[in-house]
Design a protein around this nucleic acid. Structure first.
Lengths: 229, 229
DNA sequence: CCAAAAGTGTTATGGATACACCCATGA
DNA sequence: TCATGGGTGTATCCATAACACTTTTGG
């Protein structure tokens, strides 16, 4: 009976496509690669893969991110399901996830293996299928998330400077932010800890390193903090 | 080659589940029905259906809403894809959509046919599979949307009173709102038009009917209005 | 006449914005 | 010494929140 009802239904290939986001050189960057198979072989594509029968969808996304970056410690969130009829030669339903990764942990040998490249989000080329729409939807979502929680930390290593953090938020919002207001707001949240050391890589004077207090951070998120810039 | 690569991949049944939301008796209501098939026959369930090979996913959702309510004019938005392995006996990937409908247009004969019932969102029983999670995610999403656009109009007919509109927003946010502040905010948005007639169904004095100016409303949405209560 | 819901303004507070100058340092 | 990016404080403004009484009318 169960089987009888389910039997004559159409089935679909189900894929995940991952918008893998990192932050480097004061810009958000996305990992894209040359598609190795037809159709559109050689076109720019997000990192994707098919979902296996024995894995949950987020697991598939995590697997794909690992395959292409070597990074295990990621922030992963679903963007949505995409599956227009004319999307591919075969009907494929694709579930998009964005992943925030610390680009420093990226395994560059994997990049060569997959012909993968980091590109600035502002200079994204045309991608295959509806991948550009997935990226646009991701940015909107990311802006919403960033307004509610200081999500940007996932894109940085343990240590960062305030100028770096600011430029990260400027990349997310795609607008400039007043230095003083930014610092005021971040520091009054009371989750940042100033260290003694300075990062002198981008100025002579050097900028103090900070790290964030994960307990306080998690506590704030519990309380449903509104963090708008 | 294409076929060769795609050939040995697993395929899945893909369903849509619809969180159909209406507003009546000062409460948000959701349409649920007794599941007619195994597994969990007789359990409370959202309105669902399988996606056909020749239809896009939002089309499938629209079709399902039509089948169960007879309503064509709906606001539809994707909530996300759900597809845990142990979700069903067969592996099913389900894409959830919420639909905002004007409950007055509901075709009650369809309710009997499908054993469908409107229940208050605050008194939702336990549903099959992960349908409760879908509803929780929907409410969160709806609250976010309601903060950015006056989405509530989709749940009302052409005419409504301010007390009704307020109680709608109170249902969405699940908290009470100050009358004066609510009216001030709504009226300064300048999209409501006050009519001469009154609705006397809920008070002796009667409350003035309003309708909203769709052009101004769409214009405001373009501008990315922030509408928080 | 009274109960029940509709309608109406003002004040206080706090977060957001705008804005300009000095500091430290390596080259 | 100077060019470059890092760091700091204050005043204004506007949106939000808090708050209580009068009006209407059917029963």
């Amino acid at each position: 009976m169960t089987a009888a009802f389910y039997q004559n239904k159409d089935t679909f290939l189900v894929a995940v496509d991952c918008i893998i986001i990192g932050f480097r050189d004061n810009d958000l960057q996305i990992l894209i690669s040359r598609r190795p198979i037809e159709p559109f072989r050689g076109g720019w594509s997000l990192m994707g893969g098919f979902v296996n029968a024995q894995e949950n969808i987020p697991e598939a996304a995590k697997r794909v991110v690992g395959e292409f970056t070597g990074i295990e410690d990621i922030y992963l969130e679903q963007v949505g399901a995409y599956g227009d009829i004319d999307r591919d030669v075969e009907r494929v339903i694709s579930v998009a996830y964005y992943a925030l990764v610390d680009i420093e942990k990226f395994d560059t040998s994997l990049a060569e293996k997959h012909d993968a490249h980091w590109v600035k989000i502002t200079l994204l080329p045309e991608l295959v299928f509806d991948h550009n729409k997935m990226v646009r939807d991701t940015i909107k979502l990311l802006q919403q998330r960033a307004a509610v929680r200081p999500i940007g930390f996932n894109l940085l290593g343990d240590l960062f400077t305030l100028p770096t953090l600011q430029s990260l938020y400027e990349s997310i919002y795609q607008e400039t932010i007043d230095k003083r207001n930014f610092r005021k707001k971040l520091l009054t949240m009371d989750i940042l800890e100033k260290l003694e050391e300075k990062d002198k890589s981008s100025s002579k004077r050097g900028a103090f390193y900070y790290n964030y207090n994960k307990e306080k951070y998690d506590q704030l998120i519990e309380q449903g903090l509104h963090f708008s810039l």
